[in-house]
């Protein structure tokens, strides 16, 4: 059961990351279009810079849980790498519980509240184009939630190694 949940979360993180990683293409496209319009046709857009910013912001936020499931977040594991597997799992579970969970739970709640304030005001950017920015803030809250989910999966996996019968 638990391992199914963990696996499900891992698959979800991977799939959503692979899907949203394609945001890099419109990001590239918008920047190139802006250069072309300004330099080539002397008619810069009023939306180019902001659009670029939004795409970049969403791109990396969607990436945080994906990078986690790929083991891509840099860590100083020169000390723990030498320990037996069960000890590693114990340290992993402990650090996830102590260092990760409290922060990410609070971040999910706080960024959710932050987005909610913005939604209620239908907040727009303070620019000429004035695009709505509440969707971006919603993405931020959502991505912290995704990361939190991934943390649960990591915790389950570490606990399973820790309590497995297998001697390592």
């Amino acid at each position: 059961m638990l391992s199914k949940i963990a696996k499900g979360i891992d698959t979800f993180s991977t799939k959503q990351g692979e899907f949203t990683s394609m945001l890099i293409i419109p990001l590239l496209g918008v920047v190139l279009y802006e250069v072309l319009m300004r330099y080539g046709f002397n008619s810069p857009t009023i939306w180019g810079f902001e659009m670029t910013g939004f795409l970049y912001g969403m791109h990396y936020m969607f990436g945080i849980s994906y990078t986690d499931v790929r083991g891509g977040h840099v860590r100083v594991d020169i000390f723990t790498a030498l320990a037996p597997k069960k000890v590693q799992a114990a340290i992993g579970a402990l650090t996830t519980l102590v260092l990760f969970m409290p922060v990410m739970i609070c971040m999910t709640v706080a960024s959710g509240k932050y987005a909610w304030t913005s939604i209620q005001a239908l907040e727009r950017n303070s620019t000429s184009w004035q695009p709505p920015i509440y969707p971006i803030k919603m993405v931020m809250a959502l991505c912290f939630f995704f990361l939190l989910l991934q943390g649960f999966s990591n915790l389950i996996k570490d606990l399973q190694i820790l309590f497995s019968k297998e001697e390592r």
Binding site: R38, P44, I46, T127
Partner: peptide, 23 residues
């Protein structure tokens, strides 16, 4: 090609300049 922001950006655009809100 002008850099400005806010209300003046819209005004200059209406006046025919090509205005960019460069950061």
């Amino acid at each position: 090609r002008v850099r400005t922001v806010g209300w003046y950006m819209d005004i200059l655009n209406k006046l025919g300049a090509s205005v960019s809100p460069l950061p």
